[in-house]
Amino acid sequence: MTESMWKGGHDIADRCARIFEDNGLGGPRNMEELVTRVSNISGKPVMIEPLGDERWETITALWVSYPASDLVLVRATDTHLYRTHCILHELAHIIYRHPGCSDLASAEVVQSLISDGATVRGRVVNPQAVRVASERSETIEGEAENLARLLGRSLLRPRYAAGEKSFG
């Protein structure tokens, strides 16, 4: 059985559940409302841009944190669902107020984006075995991935959820 890419465990799950609850993240009904909520939490506008492509290789999304705004970049070539999840992963970093990642800052695709004291963190889908990241960084990524899945679940509502609840 292949090892999971993301660090998990009860500690991470409990923290995610608490953050989800404390920030009222079950309220937003679509991505637009969620981004607004995240922006309110961080106190900075959050912009999302589909930009990258397969040249990003195993980087599926990036969060660039500027002093006055947050920018989330995703690979335009990925499917809508996968892109959405990768955005949720980066939004989770913003909600958690995670620090930037120095390892990723040296990557070629990232360098052009960093200016004026910006920090960067990316969703990199390398198996844990080949990663060189620290234990702390693995935990941070695990937290973001776990929260992203909670956010994804809360956005997954049947189109006629209210009708189905009463009449289904």
Binding site: A17, R149, R153, L155
Partner: peptide, 11 residues
């Protein structure tokens, strides 16, 4: 399959 623990499953 990485699966989040029990959480909101609106759908």
């Amino acid at each position: 399959s990485a699966t989040a623990e029990d959480g909101p499953a609106t759908g």
